[in-house]
Nucleic acid binder design. Structure first.
Length: 683
DNA sequence: ATTAGGG
DNA sequence: CCCTAAT
C-alpha cells in the first residue's frame, strides 16, 4: 500500500510557519516523498531533507522526533513510513509567532494553537498519565481538570472565533459532571450536528479567490480503511481526491461544486443528526447522572459516532482541499497523549465498571480459585476475570486553523472533517498501564500487571489511529463491500484464537466495526498488515515501553506549537483506488506479444501497442507496456545471472534489443516526425 | 489521454 | 509499478 502523509506548511498570517507542508513545488519534494514512502525512513534523513530542501533554507538545524506511529515499531530504531514525526527548529526563537493577542487581532487561530501547545507542552513533558494531567491542570487558571478543559485553549478560541468552539470546551467542574462526563459528550456531539451550518458556506465562496500560499503535496496514503458498507450511503458529489494537482482553480471555478457538496453534506448531516439524536434520546447513557451506561449502550454510541465519520467520509472534502482556498486550513494530528480536550468531544466511552479486585498473591501463586469481589463471582475457570472500567478513551488531537472570517458552521464542519479523517483511517485501541504502553498483545493481563485493583486505576485505553492499511484482498475487486460488523460486536473480538483475556468481550466493548481480521490478510500484505487490536501479536517488540519511547505512538514531548511541525494527515486518498496495483509479472507469451507489437509499431506508440497486443488485457495499461519494454531492454542488456523472475527466452531478448536499436535509430532520424503507422522494422 | 522518464 | 511533467 502506498503510504502517504500529507505534509504541508502554512503561515499564520505573515508570521512564521507553524505547520510544515511539503509543497508541490518544493525542490526537495520528491526526495522527501520518496523517503517518506520508503519503508524504513530515517527520521534524520527526513528532517534533513525537509530542512535543507524545503521551506527554510536558512534554518537547517532541526530536531525530529516521532510523535506517533505503529504500535509495533521496529526494534532496530528505524522508522517506518507510518510513523508520525514532529520536526522543529532547534532555534525556536526564530519561529516565534507572537503573542496571543497578536493572533487575535491580526492572524488567525495561531493563538489557540500556541496556547494550547504551551499547555500541552507543559503537561506532556512529563509524559503524564491522565491522572497527572488532571492534577496538573487543576492548578491552572481554570481550576478545572484538564481532562476536559484547557482554559487557554478555550480562551483563545473564543477570542478568535467568537466563541465558535466554546461549546466544545466548556468548563465544567469535575464534580458537576456526572458519571464519566458523558453529558458533555452528548452536548458536544449533538451540538455539532444540530448547529451545523446549512448555508453553502460563505467562507468558501468568499475565500475561494484567495490565492493559495503554496502548493501542496500528496503522498498517496497507504492507509485504506475497509471500504464498502458505508459507501452506498454516500453522496457521490465528491471528486476523486487523488488528482489533487489542481490549485485553487478547482475551488475557484467550482463554487458551485463546493456549494453542492456542502448542501448535500447538509442533507447527510440531517440524516445523521436525526439518527444520532434518536439514538441519544433512547440510548444515551449520559442523559442522567448516576446512571452508568452499560456496555451495550456504549457500543451503540460509539457505533453511531463512527458511523458519522464514515458516512461523511466522502461527502466531505478533506479539509486541505479547501485549505488551499482558505489559505488556511485544518491540521489534524495525532497526539494520543495528553489530549483530553478533544477526547472529551469524541467517541468517548464511558463504562460503568463493576468492581473487581484481584488479589495479587493469589495470582502470583497461580491459584485457581475463584475470587469473589462484590456481588459477582469469578468464573470457575482457570482464569480470574478482571473487570475494567474504562472511563474514557483518548483520541487523537486535532488542530484547527481557520480564518477569522470563517463561520462557526464552517468551523464545525472542519472539526467534523478532521474527526472523520481520523476515524476513517481506522483506529485501534492501545492500553496503557501507569503511563506505560503495553505493547505485547500476547501478554496475559496477569503478566502485564493488569490484575491488581490498585493498578487498574491506572489503566488507560487510548484510541489510536491506524497507521497501516488494511490489505486489499477483498478490495482488489473494488466492489465487494466490507462486511459491516454488527454493533454488538462481541463476536469479532473473540475470533482470534490467540486472543488474550483482554479480548474478552465483556471487558472490551468499544470496537464495534472493525473488519474481520481474518479478511484483511493478503499475500500482498507485509509488516504493514493491519493488526487487529489485541489479538495479533506484535512482531517486533514484546517489551513494554514507556510512552516516551520514540517509537511509541505517544505524547509529543514539549511540543511547541511555534515549532515547525510536520503534521501527518490521516487522509487516505480515495482508499478504494489508491492501493498499489498488484504486481503481475509479464508472462513469456505476453513478452512475446509485446515484442512483436513493438517490432511492428515502434517504441513511441504505446497506446497502439496496447490496442494491438493487449487490448483485452485490462490490467496492462500502455504505461505498463512501456515500462515493461523498458525493463526488457534492460534485461536484455544484463547478464542472465543478473536477471530475475521468470526467464525470458534469449531469442525474445535479442529481438528486444534489435527492435530497440532499430526504433531508436528511427527516432533519431526523425525526431519530430514519427514513422508512418505502416512502418515496421520488419518490413 | 498519452508519452517519456525518473523513481 | 508509481508519479509526473509535458504534450
Amino acid at each position: 500500500m502506498v503510504w502517504t502523509k500529507r505534509l504541508g506548511y502554512g503561515f499564520n498570517g505573515n508570521q512564521s510557519p507553524t505547520m510544515l507542508l511539503v509543497p508541490r513545488s518544493a525542490k526537495g519534494k520528491r526526495s522527501v516523498r520518496k523517503k517518506s514512502r520508503d519503508n524504513h525512513t530515517n527520521a534524520i534523513d527526513m528532517l534533513a531533507t525537509i530542512a535543507a530542501d524545503l521551506l527554510l533554507e536558512s534554518e537547517k538545524s532541526f530536531t525530529a522526533q516521532v510523535i506517533g506511529g505503529p504500535s509495533n515499531p521496529t526494534s532496530n530504531g528505524t522508522l517506518k513510513k507510518e510513523h508520525l514525526f514532529e520536526v522543529k527548529p532547534i532555534k525556536e526563537e526564530a519561529f516565534d509567532q507572537g503573542s496571543c493577542s497578536e493572533s487575535v487581532s491580526g492572524s488567525n487561530g495561531g493563538c489557540a494553537l500556541k496556547e494550547h501547545g504551551k499547555l500541552n507542552s507543559d503537561v506532556r513533558s512529563k509524559n503524564p498519565t491522565q491522572t497527572e494531567l488532571m492534577t496538573k491542570c487543576s492548578s491552572g487558571d481554570c481550576g478545572y481538570p484538564f481532562e476536559r478543559h484547557s482554559p487557554c485553549y478555550a480562551e483563545c478560541w473564543e477570542g478568535n472565533l467568537a466563541g465558535g468552539i466554546r461549546a466544545l470546551n466548556q468548563c465544567e467542574p469535575l464534580a458537576n459532571r456526572s458519571p464519566a462526563s458523558g453529558k458533555v459528550l452528548e452536548t458536544c456531539i449533538l451540538g455539532e450536528l444540530m448547529q451545523l451550518d446549512s448555508k453553502p458556506s460563505a467562507l468558501v465562496s468568499s475565500d475561494s479567490s484567495v490565492k493559495a500560499p503554496s502548493g501542496e503535496d500528496h503522498i498517496p496514503h497507504n492507509t485504506s480503511f475497509p471500504t464498502g458498507w458505508w459507501e452506498e450511503k454516500q453522496l457521490h458529489l465528491d471528486r476523486d481526491d487523488d488528482d489533487d494537482d489542481e490549485n485553487c482553480s478547482r475551488c475557484t471555478h467550482g463554487s458551485t461544486i463546493t456549494s453542492k457538496v456542502f448542501r448535500s453534506h447538509d442533507k447527510q448531516t440531517d440524516r445523521i443528526k436525526k439518527l444520532l439524536m434518536s439514538k441519544f434520546r433512547k440510548d444515551s447513557p449520559f442523559s442522567t447522572n448516576g446512571d452508568f451506561p452499560n456496555s451495550v449502550v456504549d457500543k451503540k454510541l460509539l457505533f453511531s459516532s463512527r458511523k458519522i465519520g464514515y458516512t461523511r467520509k466522502r461527502t466531505q472534502r478533506y479539509p486541505f482541499k479547501r485549505r488551499k482556498c482558505f489559505e488556511r486550513g485544518l491540521m489534524s494530528t495525532y497526539d494520543e497523549a495528553a489530549n483530553f480536550e478533544y477526547m472529551s468531544n469524541l467517541p468517548e466511552i464511558n463504562m460503568k465498571v463493576e468492581n473487581f479486585d484481584m488479589d495479587a498473591s493469589l495470582h502470583e501463586a497461580n491459584i485457581k480459585s475463584a475470587h469473589i469481589t462484590g456481588q459477582r463471582s469469578i468464573h470457575e475457570s482457570e482464569d480470574f476475570h478482571v473487570k475494567l472500567r474504562i472511563k474514557s478513551f483518548k483520541v487523537p488531537e486535532l488542530f484547527v486553523e481557520i480564518p477569522k472570517s470563517a463561520t462557526v458552521g464552517s468551523l464545525k464542519r472542519m472539526v467534523m472533517e478532521a474527526v472523520t479523517a481520523i476515524l476513517r483511517g481506522g483506529i485501534h485501541v492501545g492500553v496503557l498501564l501507569q503511563g506505560k504502553k503495553i505493547r505485547d498483545d500476547n501478554k496475559t493481563l496477569l503478566q502485564a500487571g493488569i490484575s491488581h485493583g490498585d493498578k487498574l486505576d491506572k489503566l488507560g485505553f487510548i484510541l489510536e489511529p491506524d497507521n497501516v492499511t488494511l490489505s486489499p484482498p477483498l478490495l482488489t475487486n473494488h466492489e465487494e463491500p466490507s462486511p459491516l460488523l454488527p454493533c454488538n460486536a462481541t463476536e469479532p473480538l473473540t475470533r482470534s484464537p490467540s486472543a488474550t483475556p483482554l479480548a474478552d468481550p465483556s471487558t472490551i466493548i468499544a470496537l464495534p466495526e472493525f473488519p474481520n481480521p481474518s479478511a484483511v490478510n493478503s499475500p500482498e500484505s507485509d509488516h504493514n498488515s493491519f493488526h487487529f487490536p489485541m489479538d495479533v501479536p506484535l512482531q517486533d517488540d514484546h517489551q513494554d515501553e514507556t510512552s516516551s519511547d520514540s517509537r511509541a505512538l505517544v505524547p509529543v514531548l514539549a511540543m511547541n506549537m511555534n515549532a515547525l511541525s510536520i503534521v501527518p494527515i490521516q487522509k487516505p486518498k480515495r482508499p478504494e483506488h489508491s492501493q498499489r496495483r498488484i504486481r503481475r509479472p509479464f508472462s513469456v507469451s505476453e513478452v512475446e506479444a509485446l515484442v512483436q507489437a513493438v517490432e511492428k509499431l515502434g517504441t513511441g506508440r504505446w497506446r497502439d501497442v496496447k490496442i494491438r497486443a493487449f487490448d483485452n488485457a485490462n490490467h496492462r495499461t500502455y504505461v505498463d507496456l512501456k515500462d515493461k519494454w523498458k525493463t526488457l531492454v534492460h534485461t536484455a542488456k544484463i547478464t542472465p545471472q543478473q536477471r530475475r523472475g521468470e526467464p525470458v527466452p534469449q531469442e525474445l531478448l535479442d529481438r528486444v534489443l534489435a527492435a530497440h536499436a532499430y526504433w531508436s535509430q528511427q527516432q533519431a532520424r526523425l525526431p519530430t516526425k514519427p514513422p508512418p503507422a505502416e512502418d515496421c522494422m520488419l518490413n
